[in-house]
């Protein structure tokens, strides 16, 4: 018999005036969290100041409702008697696509939960109130899932193996004038913005800048050396070059795995390059393929 979660006598949230917008949104089946207008980061749980930068310009925004299961537990002996009729039930740590992690109730899916599962907001009436619970995103029907477990591991033979969703890697280097010349050697790009200092300084950039390929090149190194690792090539990229990089500037590239195909060594990654001040210079996503270099 399915459990009527709404009939449970579970503890109600102890809301305050500050946190009330979270619970008001929850009651409407929505998930709203604070965002800091000063540092741009999402904040959970609600606070009067941003815990990242201590700014006070916090605004409430509805989130995408997408998340990833960082960890979970099937609770057999609840800590509160009100939950006894529902046991065993699953709670999990949900890393929201916007960044922060919240604890939530995880509705059962077709398969037992696994760390790394993609989740979707699933507002659920529990204990007489609607709470922002989550459910697994069913990527395939049960039949297909059963079949896919029989097919071979698409990442067999990949040097560093199958990456985890949420895994990330970073690399830092300092740009040099010789980068510009090397890139010209490869491509023939002799744009005066890279060579004519006086002209470059009068331009919107105000300085000599390196070619975009020098900036994005750090991402080639990241995917090929670190994550997913040796054998990786780009299949598709969607990059915005939002700030130019000058000569003798420190840049830090970052890749984070967002989706991993089980059947083929293909994953989607989030990519960024920041300068020494932490300002975003390149942002976007990419799809990469990792050639299995080890004899399968």
């Amino acid at each position: 018999m399915p459990i009527d979660f709404n009939a449970l006598k579970t503890p109600a949230p102890t809301s305050t005036a500050l946190t009330q917008p979270f619970w008001d949104a929850a009651a409407q089946g929505r998930l709203k969290i604070q965002h800091c207008e000063d540092c741009g980061k999402a904040v959970f749980y609600p606070r009067p100041i941003c815990p990242h930068c201590w700014g006070k310009r916090l605004v409430w925004k509805e989130v995408s409702g997408k998340g990833r299961l960082k960890s979970f537990s099937q609770v057999h002996k609840p800590g509160h008697a009100g939950w006894l009729p529902a046991a065993p039930y699953v709670v999990g740590l949900v890393e929201l696509a916007e960044g922060p992690t919240m604890l939530s109730f995880i509705l059962p899916g077709a398969q037992p939960p696994r760390a790394g599962d993609a989740l979707q907001l699933a507002p659920t009436a529990i204990g007489g109130r609607v709470l922002p619970a989550f459910k697994p995103v069913e990527t395939a029907t049960e039949e297909e899932a059963a079949m896919s477990t029989e097919t071979k591991d698409g990442w067999a033979g990949v040097v560093k193996g199958r990456p985890q969703v949420g895994a990330f890697a970073e690399r830092t280097r300092r740009t040099r004038a010789s980068d510009i010349e090397a890139f010209t050697d490869i491509t023939g790009d002799r744009n005066p913005l890279h060579y004519d200092r006086a002209l470059a300084e009068r331009s919107v950039f105000g300085k000599l800048i390196v070619q975009g390929g020098v900036t994005s090149g750090i991402l080639n190194a990241l995917v090929a050396e670190d994550l997913p690792g040796p054998g990786t090539v780009f299949l598709e990229v969607a990059w915005k070059f939002v700030k130019a990089v000058g000569v003798d500037e420190e840049i830090t590239g970052r890749v984070e795995v967002k989706e991993v195909r089980p059947d083929k060594p293909i994953c989607k990654i989030e990519t960024s390059v920041r300068n020494g001040q932490g300002e975003l210079c390149l942002t976007g996503t990419a799809t990469v393929f990792t050639v299995p270099l080890q004899g399968a």
Binding site: S73, Y89, L131
Partner: peptide, 23 residues
């Protein structure tokens, strides 16, 4: 914790450490 964990079914340290162990 009382406001944002307990209403979702997570009371007490057992569940917190279970989450660490599963991770």
């Amino acid at each position: 914790i009382r406001e944002f964990d307990v209403p979702f079914g997570a009371s007490g340290a057992n569940i917190s450490y279970a989450l660490l162990m599963q991770a």
